[in-house]
Simulated scan of single mutants.
Amino acid sequence: NERPLTQKSNYGIEPVNNTIFGLNSNFSTEIPFLTRLANKLPNIDTDVPSNLSLRGEVAFLQPNSPKNADFQGETTT
């Protein structure tokens, strides 16, 4: 969360009140079916388990102006 230090703003610099939301996720599992499928290929014989791993990340920035700055609730650019 980002907020201005003072209620005053200099020319060319606008106060901000940005909020960032984020989510990270990891998923991992063993899939013995893939090991058995690989063993059916010619010249391949393995006993190491197969793994499936998924990773994801999502982020969102919500721009806003501070309540004490008189911009009628709008963020200017």
Rank of each mutant, 00 (worst) to 15 (best):
D47T: 13
R55I: 03
N43I: 03
N18H: 15
E30T: 12
K40H: 06
T77W: 13
Y11K: 14
A38K: 05
N24M: 10
F60V: 14
P32L: 11
P32E: 13
F33P: 02
S50N: 01
T6F: 15
Q62Y: 12
D70C: 08
T75F: 09
A38T: 04
N17S: 05
E57S: 11
G56E: 05
N43D: 02
T35P: 02
T29L: 06
G73S: 04
T29R: 08
L23M: 12
S53I: 12
R55G: 06
G73D: 04
L37M: 06
G22C: 05
N24P: 00
E14I: 14
T46Y: 00
E74R: 12
N68M: 13
P66T: 02
D47N: 11
N39H: 01
I13D: 03
Q72Y: 12
P4S: 13
P32Y: 08
N10Y: 15
Q62A: 15
N64Y: 01
N10G: 14
N17H: 08
F33L: 12
N51G: 06
N64I: 02
T76C: 04
T76E: 04
G22A: 13
L37Q: 03
L34S: 01
A38M: 05
K8E: 10
K40F: 06
N10F: 15
R3L: 13
S9L: 08
S50W: 08
L23C: 07
K8M: 05
I44Q: 00
K40T: 07
A38V: 02
E14C: 11
L54Q: 03
S53T: 13
P66G: 01
T76R: 13
S28Y: 04
V16P: 03
E57Y: 12
E2L: 15
G56T: 13
Q7P: 07
